[in-house]
Write a protein that binds this DNA or RNA. Structure first.
Lengths: 224, 224
DNA sequence: CTATTAATTTAAGCATGCTTAAATTTATGT
DNA sequence: ACATAAATTTAAGCATGCTTAAATTAATAG
């Protein structure tokens, strides 16, 4: 049987794997803020239930069924984020924490109603793609980490990491928003910090901040 | 510390006491669908935490603090019901089950946003009063159970029990709605079944159904 | 290649909130 | 009043999902 805890484990495994990061015991221990022993324990259970495949000391991979559950949890999470932001005007930096709890307590019918209400959106307020009810992700260009962009080039801001409320508040403050334009002015090789321009104003991002921002090619034709 | 389970116990105790029903072990066991032993167990814990006062074999009473939590859970429940019905158009018979889960997973900020969005409503879709954020209940005339009404009199439908989806679906089907008019035509002494008129159409309610409907005086002046 | 370090797993234990079965207390009928 | 029934509590046990500490396996440096 699936529980809140198992949903969270599956989601965390999915999110690591989808970023190309191995779902190891220590990585998950860090992500989920529980001990290594707890991860090891749960890995056995999820494996026995056929939701992950797991060999001792080797990390975890989702089975088809495990992936389906993970995507469903993510769907619920992102739809809640979009819904709360749109209807209640909750700031995009704060919807994550609410969604983190609500995602485990909503019927499929409720989630589909929210989806319908929002007009079947493809992305949540942070630019993350929302899995459809059939489990597919909408097509979208692959996100480019701001850390890997070219100096002198303009990009479209496509996604920010949804997990840090304070950082997103700062983004709001400086006018950084999804689908906005960002120009990479310079990158200091000393610390990989970035000089960028947003709405004509200059800002400097540490590498750590830049790692939370993702962009796409900027296409002046399709933008206003 | 308060948990989902404790919130549910406190809510159930409150709801019994507010109907003038003693919060005994067996009553709560029935309401919460757990064993008598579980109730007994929890009674000790809640008592130790100062949320109820409890003497063995004597039933439970909420302390001030326990009542505060109970009212807060009820507030969350009823605001969710109102919100889901209004925004998503979820039928009034179905919002209860969703609210039953969401009530335990919403921050105070979220609940207050919902309250604000709805314009600080006094009643939920079933006619139940919504506790305010300060813990007070809105003033309202006391509900009269349909079972205690006078034959030949017209009443305003004020509240229905929110717990039975099927029954509420039936109410919808026959045009029974909150604030609607209902005339008591006859009561059979044999089984206390009621003949009523709603929108000019006659219906018969068993006593069991009537016990789930509550009314107020009908005032033709204030009604349209 | 081996010693040391890092990562992971196993073992034992704990809190929560249930269960069933047995014991106990309270209520009821005559 | 007193036997019986009903209600309640106690006892023992279980599943979940954690913890810390010890044991084990894998990775890495020299």
């Amino acid at each position: 049987m699936s529980t809140i805890s198992k949903e969270n484990y599956l989601k965390a495994i999915y999110q690591n794997l989808s970023l190309g990061v191995a779902a190891t015991t220590s990585k998950l221990s860090n992500d989920l803020e529980v001990s290594n022993a707890a991860i090891s324990d749960m890995a056995k259970k999820l494996s026995k239930e056929g939701l992950i495949s797991y060999e001792k000391y080797k990390g975890m991979v989702l089975t088809k069924e495990g992936k389906k559950i993970a995507l469903d949890v993510i769907r619920r999470h992102r739809l809640w984020e979009a819904f709360l932001a749109k209807v209640l005007g909750i700031p995009w930096g704060e919807v994550h924490n609410e969604a983190e709890r609500l995602e485990h307590h909503s019927s499929e019918e409720l989630i589909n109603k929210i989806d319908e209400y929002l007009g079947y959106p493809d992305f949540d307020p942070h630019g993350d793609p929302i899995p459809r009810s059939n489990g597919n992700l909408p097509d979208a260009p692959k996100f480019i980490p701001l850390t890997k962009t070219k100096v002198g080039t303009a990009y479209k801001i496509a996604r920010v990491n949804d997990k840090n409320t304070d950082l997103i508040r700062y983004f709001t403050k400086i006018g950084l928003k999804i689908n906005g334009k960002l120009k990479v002015v310079d990158r200091l090789s000393f610390d990989d910090s970035l000089h960028v321009e947003i709405n004509g104003r200059p800002f400097t991002f540490s590498e750590k901040i830049a790692a939370n921002i993702f962009v796409n090619e900027y296409n002046p034709e399709t933008e206003k």
